[in-house]
């Protein structure tokens, strides 16, 4: 009887196992294998050892993409997370919460590629809204996305515009599910709004904050859609992220081995972030 029950459990596990093995572990294993080879698709892969990894960490273009990816991670922690928290606290104490939630959440319903196309037009020199406003103020025309000093920041702004609403809703849910007793007790003790926020609300919000931060870090480490649609990683590869470098090497230039090595680096960074955040969720001893 016990044995049948065990079989039962394994049988129910099988569909998920097939998916995980067939669609995740096998491709991941093959990617890791390819990352140690040189392969141009039309000939057989040739084993090259660590050559691709050495190239990844010595290539100025990939190091620049790594820098941009770090900027994306920091930028998305800075704007969509902190701003969402501040707005959630403000909205939590006003009427018409539904209206504000809808307004801020609306961009989340767009695909990132669509958001990228919209903002590409907004930033364009060809009758784009931003340049039209700047022109009407007599400030001239600015080639915003072609300026490698600022284009990454402008695109982080697009991401913030799109996903702040999601974080805001998550923080609102967190705020509304907080126990009232500690906050009431702090009020009775004469704590100010900021003291209550910093010493009571924020620590109680830790699980939601960690979830939002984990999402932000993991999603932006793999950032592809918005910079690809808006600049193709240019000009001159200046706004490339690691995900774009991987795509460019693998699918545009057919350097599958080198592209796979970049993919493995992205996966390792993402796993570190995910592991770090999962650890934070573990109950303390």
């Amino acid at each position: 009887m016990k044995r049948i029950k065990e079989l039962d459990a394994y049988a129910f596990l099988m569909p998920a196992l097939f998916f995980v093995i067939g669609a995740e572990l096998l491709p991941a294993g093959y990617t890791i294998y390819l990352s140690f080879t040189e392969w141009n698709i039309i000939t057989s892969p040739e084993w090259t050892g660590l050559a691709n990894y050495i190239q990844v960490f010595s290539s100025p273009q990939v190091l620049n993409a790594l820098k941009n990816t770090v900027l994306w991670v920091l930028g998305t922690l800075g704007f969509p997370v902190i701003l969402a928290l501040v707005l959630a606290v403000l909205i939590n104490s006003v009427k018409f919460q539904g209206f504000f939630k809808t307004i801020f959440y609306l961009p989340v319903t767009l695909a990132p590629t669509v958001a990228g196309v919209i903002w590409k037009v907004v930033y364009s020199t060809q009758n784009g809204a931003v340049n039209s406003i700047l022109q009407s103020m007599g400030l001239g025309t600015f080639q915003l996305l072609a300026n490698s000093s600022i284009n990454t920041f402008l695109m982080i702004g697009v991401w913030a515009w799109q996903f702040m609403g999601l974080n805001l809703v998550l923080f609102l849910v967190g705020l509304q599910s907080l126990p009232e007793e500690p906050i009431e007790a702090a009020k009775v003790d004469g704590a100010s709004f900021w003291q209550i926020f910093y010493h009571v609300t924020l620590p109680l919000l830790k699980p939601i904050t960690m979830l939002v931060i984990a999402n932000a870090m993991i999603n932006t480490t793999r950032m592809f859609a918005i910079p690809w649609v808006m600049t193709h990683g240019g000009p001159a590869r200046s706004s490339e992220t690691l995900a774009i470098s991987m795509y460019r090497e693998s699918f545009l230039l057919s350097n599958m081995g080198y592209g796979s090595a970049i993919a493995v680096v992205i996966a390792i960074i993402t796993l570190i972030f995910a592991w770090r955040n999962l650890k934070a969720f573990e109950p303390s001893a």
Partner: peptide, 21 residues
């Protein structure tokens, strides 16, 4: 009952396996 469930799960697994591969 358990036997039926095992058979159902196994059939489902095979279908999924077939589809994926």
């Amino acid at each position: 009952m358990s036997k039926n469930r095992t058979i159902t799960a196994s059939v489902l697994s095979l279908i999924v396996f077939g589809l994926v591969f």
